[in-house]
């Protein structure tokens, strides 16, 4: 099967090559990829970004949306720094795109590696990932107020917050909760969201701020309980998940007196030096991807915020978010010295 794919790839390459020689190119030809597209994931296999990238790869393959194959490559080293530096070093290579998560900002800020999102060419925001405050379903805490009161009654640091990675989004949210309520957590970093969810089910940590897709299976199994969602409005997904509850029945943290909203970028960038035609090719490609039922299902399963942005609007949003991360991380003392 592998050889078949390769053959198709070579066939496609040959076809593009022949077409390039035989047909005179019109002056303003629409750009098309002529080699396999490398889709870099700056995170490990099996995580949220990886799942999204591989779903996109599957959609692109199934509906024949690109002339050349799309290949997903994980470059997770150094909290994703490896992937970002790889794309940064691929100037004028239009066959390389990267999916980002919050480590687009947090990794360079926390480690001081020579990288900034401005080194890349922004393509499109695909979606925003939500964060939810979860506790174990066996605990008596039914609301944020119960939970905060319990933490305040215990000695500082008694309550453990589990999260993915260190000085990344989960810890930033934890510090922001501490700032907003005056409680003190002991933050324990783990490698992946699934592991964090299981630590909560096993009562090894007291709460988590897992993304919906990381914890939904445990919620359906009656093992964990959502307290609030870190968005400024309740989620629109009304399909029942467990006991007449849906994503839409989770209150916002702001309404519960926890004055904080945080969303994580799931967006696409490409290598530096890309022309507007090349950017436009990928924008159109992702518009087509967003129309497929597979994509809509992924969005509903993970209760994603389906904002879509391109061009200047997207760049401005990223710039604003970078400043916000810089402020949050500075307050928390997470910036590299």
């Amino acid at each position: 099967m592998m050889s078949q794919t390769t053959r198709i790839a070579f066939g496609a390459l040959a076809a593009v090559g022949v077409a390039g020689v035989l047909t005179p190119q019109p002056a303003q030809a629409q750009w098309q990829p002529s080699r396999p597209i490398e889709f870099i994931v700056p995170a490990g296999t099996g995580g949220g970004a990886d799942q999204m990238a591989r779903t996109i790869q599957g959609i692109v393959t199934k509906y024949n949306l690109t002339k050349t194959p799309m290949v997903v490559i994980n470059k997770a080293g150094g909290a994703g720094g490896e992937g970002f530096l790889d794309v940064k070093a691929s100037r004028n290579n239009p066959h390389k795109i990267i999916i980002t998560l919050s480590n687009l900002f947090t990794t360079p800020l926390a480690t001081g590696i020579p990288f900034n999102w401005k080194d890349l060419t922004p393509v499109a925001m695909l979606a925003l990932d939500e964060f939810v405050l979860w506790v174990n379903a066996e605990t008596p805490y039914k609301s944020v107020k119960d939970y905060v009161a319990a933490i305040k009654n215990a000695p500082p640091g008694q309550f453990k917050m589990g999260g993915t990675g260190s000085r990344q989004e989960d810890q930033i949210i934890t510090v922001a909760i501490e700032k907003s309520t005056g409680v003190k957590f002991t933050y324990i970093p783990f490698r992946g969201g699934g592991e964090v969810a299981v630590q909560l089910v096993g009562n090894h940590v007291n709460s988590t701020v897992n993304n919906p897709i990381e914890a939904v299976a445990q919620w359906r199994g009656g093992k964990v309980r959502p307290l609030c969602v870190f968005d400024d409005a309740v989620l629109p997904y009304k399909e029942t998940i467990v006991d007449n509850l849906s994503w839409a029945s989770i209150p916002t943290c702001i309404s519960q007196g926890l004055n904080l909203d945080y969303l994580m970028l799931r967006g696409i960038f490409m290598s530096p030096g890309a022309t507007p035609e090349q950017v436009n090719y990928y924008v159109e490609l992702f518009k087509k991807v967003r129309e497929t039922p597979e994509w809509k299902k992924l969005m509903a399963d993970g209760a994603f915020n389906q904002s879509f942005m391109v061009g200047d609007e997207y760049a401005k949003w990223v710039a604003k978010e970078e400043q916000r991360h810089r402020d949050l991380m500075k307050e928390a003392g997470f910036l590299a010295k």
Binding site: V216, K223, L298
Partner: peptide, 12 residues
């Protein structure tokens, strides 16, 4: 990751 893409929710 594959399970999730096929629409299966691993878990209890």
């Amino acid at each position: 990751g594959g399970l999730l893409i096929w629409g299966l929710q691993p878990g209890p």
